[in-house]
């Protein structure tokens, strides 16, 4: 929820954002009408996947960067 406020504030001031959050946070993210959200099928505290799983961590980040570039309106939510 805290980061949702940060995203809204940055966007209001003209800074594009992408939020990367575990799937468990989906309802919170949707309720806050965030611009771009990537939901990851991972456990709480590990939004980029298991420790030392650099392949997965990179995959998640690259998907987030794709979302950053592709989104055209508020509310684009992808899952990985």
């Amino acid at each position: 929820m805290s980061v949702g406020h940060v995203a809204r504030s940055f966007e209001q001031e003209g800074i594009p954002t992408v939020v990367i959050a575990v799937k468990a946070f989906e309802n919170r993210m949707r309720s806050m009408a965030l611009p771009r959200v990537l939901l990851t099928h991972e456990l709480l505290g590990r939004p980029f996947g298991r420790p030392f799983d650099s392949e997965r961590q990179t995959e998640v980040l690259e998907a987030a960067l794709d979302l950053l570039e592709d989104a055209t309106a508020n509310g684009d939510i992808w899952e990985i």
């Binding site: 929820m1 949702g4 406020h5 809204r8 966007e11 209001q12 003209g14 800074i15 594009p16 954002t17 575990v22 799937k23 468990a24 946070f25 989906e26 309802n27 919170r28 309720s31 806050m32 009408a33 965030l34 611009p35 456990l43 709480l44 950053l68 570039e69 989104a71 055209t72 309106a73 508020n74 509310g75």
Partner: peptide
């Protein structure tokens, strides 16, 4: 974990729409 965060814990921080700044 999803069950515990799925409820209405947002205490008023629910928005119909939000800002969007394009890249």
């Amino acid at each position: 974990q999803a069950l515990s965060y799925g409820g209405g814990h947002l205490k008023g921080f629910t928005y119909e729409d939000g800002p969007f700044t394009p890249m």
